[in-house]
Design a protein around this nucleic acid. Structure first.
Length: 1145
RNA sequence: GGGCGCGUAGUCUAGUGGUUAUGACGUCACCCUGACACGGUGAAGGUCGCCAGUUCGAAUCUGGCCGCGCCCA
């Protein structure tokens, strides 16, 4: 399928140098103008060998209509004002560039014999629609293409025409890169060897739907590329890397990468390849020191959210980095059944179909839940795989698999035997909707509006008046056993011991004193309802003389029980409350009502108001379990990152309450307790017993309850490795190294895992805990499924790619704080990946065929080019920062360092500076050194970036010379590889500052783009002078100036120049005659410097400063002040000069 | 109510006592420049929440206040 699948586009237009439709408006002055006269017309023509054969399916006709429009425009488009406004532009662009045309990048082979690259071509199958398009068209130009909007084109043309037509401006030579050592025969080894036909490229396992472009069976409707342009009209986008040296006929035979990378294709391919090679399968017998972590098993309740992706990305960064460091690395995936939570979801789904889960027979209900689990497990696994996370899927665990069942029961038995479990009647949180006990942690408190009622409880002895009681829950009045006041409350001192009649019931109860009563609340008196309020319960405990009441609410929170009058029996709370208020009012006992805001406890799962209720449940005694953990964290045996959360952690651990572990729900691990119907005692066993352990009777009844889902989860780090068996994995990979999770489950899970780890294995379950923040959407709102603002990670990955998602998650928001995540974040990440991609394309263009993989930096000495010394030194510093940040669990810092280095130091500065040397303009030795430096730094950047963005780096790494099978298993380079060279950084600063100053002047003086002005610099010191003299050509090229002269200290200021004063020295730039001097910038600069000088002088005049500040600081400030004075003096000179009209240069 | 944390350009963010306060997004201007317009160059934009204190010197340390968030009750 080579030719068919191969590029249908062309590297360069096949036609001759005839004036294309783009020709007249733009090309004539610029390219056809006199300054290009030395070029043969054929220069814009590709070398014959660069021309690609037309694919048989490419008839080379039938131009899309849109392109005709475009053409017409360029033919006749002139005159009129330039349209403004993004919408117009966008509309025009959309009209003219159907998405498929715009987004598909160039895919070119610059080699005629496509057969040699069949694999590559095959992989790019579907490239049929990848036409060689000018989609880099400037937005404005696109606008121009709309008939009638063509507008201002002439304005530009006029200007250019003026510049180009006259003798103004300096002809810019555009020497092509001369052939270097790479001018040899195009026998570069095929890249991507063997990867094209990855057998396991199964979209299912790869977690991604196949891109239609990759479907081989269906030839995509061909889009004809735009007509060949030549000269200036030729769409620039059509350029491919290989054309860097077309004139010499040098062919870089490497398959040219498209200008952007296509994540859907690249990512699925590498995921399949990693899987095929079992790259993430942890060795069963690891040598060296293993690195292990468990994936916090997501709940089958739903699917993965962006929050999961954040944690997973952080874990993957750590895992991949350690794997590259050569440590046998195990990352265990898993899934949590999340009993109650899942059951609630299944119940909700069935309810929509009109079925009540509770009505189904047990087996059928469980089958429904199982169905749910299957569906969601599939989805979750798909999502996790699509992210490219380096999980060892062969070790996948599910919290309800047989091993987990056994482990959970063993743990129960052990705690029971050790006396840490008890069954008791205590006040627990009751969810009346789900009709189960829940733990304290599953209760959410939130402020809600309510009405506070003041109810008069009349004296029992019939005297007038009574005691005023404030309550928001009048319906619980039937459960009252007393009225309580604070013992030191003078208002009620006389009332204690008297008796009152409970309204609506007539029961007589005492007034008691109790210190728990808040005398400032309401009227200072509270009704005591022990069975339905924790505080009241405790009050009642302290007053054993009070009656012990029955429940007044049933398990659905309806009024019931012997103390409830018939009229209220069976009423829901709300109805009962209304009725009570009505009757109290009617009876004249309702003194007043006022609005009241108070905290209401609701169930996390059902959102129903939680009823405190006395109930018989199983509990774990936590205090003994917590003690060793607190000690361990204090000793630093387990470290929490960021460490400020330790305080919160300790506070909770020290006030820890017993854990209610039994749940009255359908789904979960059964409580392994059996009650003997004969002797009444309980038998606890891992395997269901046949007879009572105490009396041997066979009449056993299993406990009907199940265990809290966290009762299994808290075992996860060792359970996932095979505990309680002494498996090989457990031996070798436990304790694990790190746990990464959200802070929201610090108590639920993290703290309990620590307790379980120490108690059951005698060891810490992990050495470090790393908390991630919550994600917020672009508006700053918390991402939640509830709000519907949390996108499905699969959608995000489909649109942006897994790598962009991953990078967007850790950059730029700190991972341990709440971070914003939205399209802007993703766009930034994607742009960075595109930048990296193009940096590699650029490198590829300058890497001679057959270049060996870089083993280390090229030998660099004092004679080496400054930019090479500088970039290596910068890379050294960046590498150190990356390693340090990762060690400190700060992936954001590492990502930021890499982002800044790759984009700004490497791409913006180094590459621009080194272009001359790379192209061979500075001689062969310089070229060799530059190429070796570039290749080394780029290759090492790919390695360091790999844990963050594994797919794109793997792809690029294979395209560049490399040694080894996979980047995923390539060694992590040591930062010390590259030499640190601080002087080079100082020197380069001068060069960069000179460039910046001149560019700045250029911009301020409105120097037209085509003008290359002369420049002068008066360096501030000999060292700067030396550097600038040595790097003069670099400054000239990057600042687009010519003939930089270094002025002596007293040399006069050249005439007709714009000027700038800076620490570097003074810069002057020739300006076009018509330009009026811009003094504003100078004045602004002077103002700023004067402010700084005043500040410095103030400090120097301060006797205290001179006396107490360290001498070096004083010297520093003195130097600074002198420097500032000098610079101000010079600015003043310039301003004086500027006042007189400049002479013509 | 108690505790913890956070307030730095329009937005997000770096910054552990001496910096001309970092970077990104956004804005404005110019530009297709032989890797990249998902790009390049330049510019504008800051009372470092407010008030006091410590210090020769505070975005940075202390206290108070204001605002926001989280956890716990």
């Amino acid at each position: 399928m080579g030719p068919r699948g191969g590029p249908s586009g062309r590297a360069c237009p096949p036609g001759g140098a005839r004036p294309g439709p783009f020709g007249p408006p733009r090309a004539a002055p610029r390219r056809g103008g006199p300054r290009r006269a030395h070029e043969r017309p054929a220069d814009r023509e590709p070398h014959p060998r660069l021309r690609l054969p037309r694919s048989p399916t490419d008839p080379g006709r039938a131009r899309p209509r849109t392109l005709d429009l475009r053409e017409r425009h360029y033919l006749d488009g002139r005159g009129g004002p330039r349209p403004r406004g993004g919408d117009d532009r966008r509309a025009a662009r959309n009209l003219l560039w159907p998405r498929v045309l715009r987004d598909r990048s160039v895919c070119l082979l610059l080699r005629p014999d496509l057969a040699a690259f069949r694999p590559f071509a095959a992989r790019r199958q579907g490239g049929a629609d990848r036409v060689d398009l000018p989609h880099r068209e400037h937005a404005r130009r696109r606008t121009d293409t709309r008939p009638g909007l063509c507008a201002d084109r002439p304005r530009r043309v006029r200007r250019r025409g003026a510049a180009g037509g006259g003798s103004r401006g300096v002809p810019r030579t555009r020497d092509p890169v001369p052939p270097g050592a790479d001018a040899g025969p195009p026998d570069h080894q095929p890249l991507h060897g063997g990867l094209a036909r990855v057998p396991g490229l199964d979209p299912g396992t790869a977690g991604r739907e196949p891109s239609p472009r990759r479907l081989p069976s269906r030839p995509v409707a061909r889009r004809e590329p735009p007509p060949p342009r030549d000269g200036a009209g030729r769409p620039r986008r059509a350029r491919a890397i290989g054309t860097v040296c077309p004139r010499e006929g040098t062919l870089l035979s490497a398959p040219v990468l498209p200008t952007r990378f296509d994540p859907s294709e690249v990512e699925a391919r590498w995921q399949a390849e990693w899987e095929r090679r079992a790259s993430f399968h942890a060795p069963d017998r690891p040598g060296g020191s293993p690195y292990s972590l468990v994936l916090p098993p997501p709940n089958v309740t739903g699917v993965l959210t962006m929050g999961h992706m954040l944690g997973d990305t952080v874990m993957d960064i750590l895992a991949r980095q350690h794997r590259m460091r050569g440590r046998p690395t195990l990352w265990v995936p898993g899934l949590d059944a999340a009993g109650l939570a899942t059951q609630v979801e299944v119940r909700r789904r069935l309810l929509k179909q009109g079925t009540l889960l509770e009505d189904l027979p047990r087996a059928q209900a469980l089958a429904e839940i199982e169905k749910w689990r299957e569906e969601h497990e599939r989805r979750i696994v798909l999502q996790a795989r699509a992210g490219g996370f380096s999980l060892d899927w062969s070790r996948f665990r599910y919290s309800m698999d047989p091993g987990c069942v056994r482990a959970t029961r063993e743990v129960f038995l052990r705690l029971y035997r050790d006396g840490l479990l008890y069954r008791g009647e205590r006040m627990i949180n009751w969810d009346p909707k789900l009709r189960t006990a829940i733990s304290d942690l599953e209760v959410i408190h939130a402020d809600e509006e309510a009405t506070l009622l003041y109810v008069r409880y009349p004296w029992a002895d019939g005297r007038p008046g009574g005691i005023e009681v404030a309550t928001v829950r009048p319906e619980t009045i039937f459960g009252d056993v007393a009225v309580a006041v604070h013992p030191e409350d003078p208002r009620h001192a006389a009332d204690v011991g008297r008796r009152v009649r409970v309204p609506l019931t007539g029961r007589v109860v005492p007034v008691v004193a109790d210190p728990a009563i808040d005398p400032t609340f309401g009227a200072g008196a509270l009704k005591v309802t022990p069975r339905h309020d924790l505080v009241d319960y405790e009050v009642a405990q302290r007053h054993p003389e009070l009656a012990s009441p029955p429940d007044i609410l049933d398990d659905r929170a309806r009024l019931a029980g012997p103390w409830v009058p018939p009229a209220y029996q069976g009423l829901e709370i709300g109805a009962a409350r209304e009725k009570a208020i009505e009757e109290l009012d009617a009876g004249g006992l309702l003194v007043r009502q006022e609005p009241y805001r108070h905290s209401v406890a609701r169930s996390e799962r059902s959102d129903a108001p939680v009823e405190p209720r006395i109930s018989t449940q199983w509990f774990v005694r936590m205090q003994g379990l917590a003690a060793p953990v607190v000690g361990a964290v204090r000793r630093g045996e387990i470290r929490i990152h960021p460490d400020r959360w330790e305080r919160t952690f300790f506070r909770w651990m020290e006030g820890i309450q017993d854990w209610c572990i039994s749940r009255q729900v359908l789904w979960g691990h059964a409580i392994p307790v059996y009650y003997c119907q004969t002797c009444g005692r309980e038998t606890v066993a891992v395997e269901p017993p046949r007879e009572c352990a105490h009396c041997g009777a066979r009449d056993l009844r299993a406990d009907p309850d199940v265990l809290d889902t966290w009762f299994t989860s808290w075992l996860w780090p060792f359970l996932a490795l095979g505990w309680p068996d002494r498996t090989a994995d457990l031996e070798r990979y436990y304790p694990t190294n790190v746990l990464v999770t959200g802070r929201d489950i610090m108590f639920f899970w993290v703290a309990r895992m620590m307790m379980a780890g120490y108690y059951f294995t005698g060891a810490r379950p992990f050495a470090d805990v790393c908390f991630t923040g919550m994600l917020r959407d672009a508006h700053g709102h918390r991402m939640s499924k509830h709000l519907g603002n949390s996108p499905d990670p699969l959608d995000v990955m489909r649109e942006w790619g897994a790598d962009a998602m991953r990078f967007g998650l850790v950059f730029p928001n700190p991972t341990d704080e709440d971070g914003q995540f939205g399209p802007a974040t993703l766009e930034g990440a994607r742009n960075f990946l595109t930048k990296t991609w193009n940096l590699a394309r650029f490198t590829l263009a300058y890497v001679p065929p057959g270049t060996a993989a870089p083993v280390g930096p090229p030998p660099i000495g004092p004679a080496s080019a400054l930019e090479n010394r500088w970039i290596l030194s910068r890379f050294r510093r960046t590498s150190e920062e990356v390693d340090r940040a990762l060690e400190e669990f700060a992936p954001t810092r590492a990502a930021t360092a890499l982002h800044g280095f790759v984009w700004h130091d490497l791409a913006d500065r180094y590459v621009e500076i080194a272009k001359d040397a790379l192209g061979g303009k500075r001689g062969e030795a310089a070229q060799r050194e530059a190429r070796a430096t570039l290749l080394f730094v780029v290759e090492r950047c790919l390695r360091r970036l790999h844990p963050f963005v594994p797919h794109v780096t793997e792809e690029l790494w294979h395209a560049l010379p490399h040694s080894g099978d996979l980047l995923a298993t390539a060694p992590w380079p040591a930062p010390t590889e590259a030499p640190a060279d601080p002087p080079s950084e100082i020197e380069m600063e001068s060069v960069l500052e000179a460039i910046r100053l001149l560019r700045n002047l250029r911009s301020e003086e409105h120097i037209p783009p085509e003008m290359i002005p002369r420049a002068w610099i008066r360096p501030a010191g000999p060292e700067i002078a030396r550097v600038l003299a040595a790097e003069r050509t670099t400054v000239e090229r990057l600042a687009r100036v010519r003939g930089v002269s270094l002025l002596e200290r007293e040399a006069p200021v050249p005439d007709g120049v714009g000027s700038r004063v800076a620490p570097l020295g003074e810069c002057y730039l020739e300006r076009p005659p018509a330009t009026i001097s811009e003094t504003r910038a100078l004045e602004r600069e002077r103002e700023k410097l004067a402010g700084l000088l005043a500040k410095a002088r103030g400090r120097l005049e301060d006797a205290g400063f001179r006396a107490r500040a360290p001498p070096e600081v004083v010297r520093d400030v003195e130097g600074k002040a002198r420097d500032l004075e000098e610079r101000i003096r010079r600015i003043d000179e310039h301003l004086k000069m500027g006042a007189s009209p400049p002479s013509t240069p």
